[in-house]
Design a protein around this nucleic acid. Structure first.
Lengths: 246, 246
DNA sequence: CTAAGTAAGTTGGACTGTACAACTAACTAT
DNA sequence: ATAGTTAGTTGTACAGTCCAACTTACTTAG
């Protein structure tokens, strides 16, 4: 297998013999970046390059790539760098999702990726040329992805949905100012089911995660109070989930 | 720094030039293995070897080590292998905890570890010679650990405590047969606070995660019903946490 | 100017599950 | 027999959701 062939010569030429003289897996970082656009949850994907020797040429994939031991202090910095490169966003909600490593996931050899997931508001930043938003319908992506990115993305969606049941994560998908019905709609989009208005309001308002601003949103009917995220607020964990379906 | 010096020559000597011709981080797997012993939560630690060039000689550390690209199919298999080597246990509760990677965590160079956490019953398996159980008091370990293992362990404890609030994880710490008060005691040990007896019983019994066996535990007072884990049961998630402290 | 329409936000009763505390049950030891 | 201990149950209070009806504040059509 490719992994072993490549591996054999890695790690030679060290000062001290023995200790570190064995093949090393490839190390990458991938990021599942979510936003809400057109009333749907969407994920950012890039098209893989077509060059000679490239695995999965022209396939869609999560943004990511090799850890650069010269540039990247640590894994989170590497993920933040990739996010910045693709979206221009610098301070998103960024959480580690897990890691996937095996002999077979990359044809170039034994490789391990550290996966992150990020939530950003729609209007944030400017997309890089090779990146595009893809909608998820029913918590699924139509397109097939390179490597095991399909599996990673599924896990990310599952984790997001799961946490939305009992945390304030959707707040990180909102623009700077938003109304409570806006926020409820985002919860409903991610969970793909309707929520109770009154229970939702009590819960969110008593969580001390958002604060009213002076303005109201005016429209063709009753104006709605605008809110913003409470500054520097960590995500809030509720002690109960929204009542689960069925 | 050592990492760069070492890194410079890694990845040379490949068949194809260019593409994979850059330094690779070290890749390791570490496992935080928990059990309940003497009415306390305990974690398994090993003493690092004392050889020349070994980092943190004779320090305590989580069991773990380099991924072996020849032996290990994937990361979970690598974690399971290390668990087996240290405890003899083959089918524990094993969950990925996260990954830690940076230029500085290992003096030998840029390295990334994939951390797992495992729950095993006390009587399971035979410990390897270099491994010992260490009690945690108040969710803390007294001893200092090698690398960033202190941080990893803290995260593992936090994750365990957090999940115990709303899942059936402690069931994996139990022996084959146990009583409901036994199980409650384990929940209380991990959470470090008392729980309501009646609410606890209703919750556990209605979760369909354990089933009564024919026997009772007899003692100096009223006998207690013995239960066992429902076969092949995934962990159960409750829709409410136990009511949080304060 | 009024009436109809719509979305924001509130209110109240039914229901579910925990908190707390008192209770009964089953055994041992003296 | 009686006291002691732990297993297990019961009942009332309370918190928060569920569900549905309600009020409020605005726009638009006639």
């Amino acid at each position: 297998m490719a992994g072993e062939a490549l591996g054999k010569d890695l790690g030679k030429g060290l000062g001290k013999p023995g200790q570190l003289d064995f093949p090393r897996p490839l190390t990458t970082v991938d990021v599942a970046i979510f936003t809400i656009r057109d009333d749907r949850l969407q994920v950012l994907l890039v098209r893989r390059p077509a060059g000679e020797g490239e695995p999965f040429p022209e396939s869609l994939a999560l943004p990511g790539g090799f850890v650069d031991v010269a540039k990247d202090r640590d894994l989170a910095a590497c993920a933040a760098r990739k996010l910045k490169e693709k979206t221009g966003v610098t301070s998103p909600y960024l959480e580690q999702l897990g890691s996937w490593g095996s002999a077979t996931r990359d044809p170039r050899g034994w490789s391990a990726t550290h996966a992150y997931f990020a939530l950003i508001p729609e209007e944030a930043g400017e997309l890089s040329a090779d990146a595009r938003w893809f909608p998820l319908s029913g918590g699924r992506l139509k397109e097939k992805l390179a490597f095991d990115h399909g599996e990673i993305l599924s896990t990310a969606i599952q984790r997001l949905r799961n946490k939305v049941e009992y945390t304030s994560l959707p707040a990180y998908l909102m623009p700077a100012e938003f109304t409570l019905p806006d926020l409820q709609r985002v919860y409903e989009i991610v969970l793909d089911r309707p929520l109770e208005k009154s229970a939702f309001r009590t819960r969110i308002l008593s969580a001390d995660m958002i604060e009213p601003v002076a303005r109201m949103r005016r429209g063709p009917n009753r104006p709605a109070q605008l809110y913003r995220l409470t500054k520097g607020r960590e995500p809030v964990y509720f002690v109960r989930t929204f009542n689960p379906p069925e």
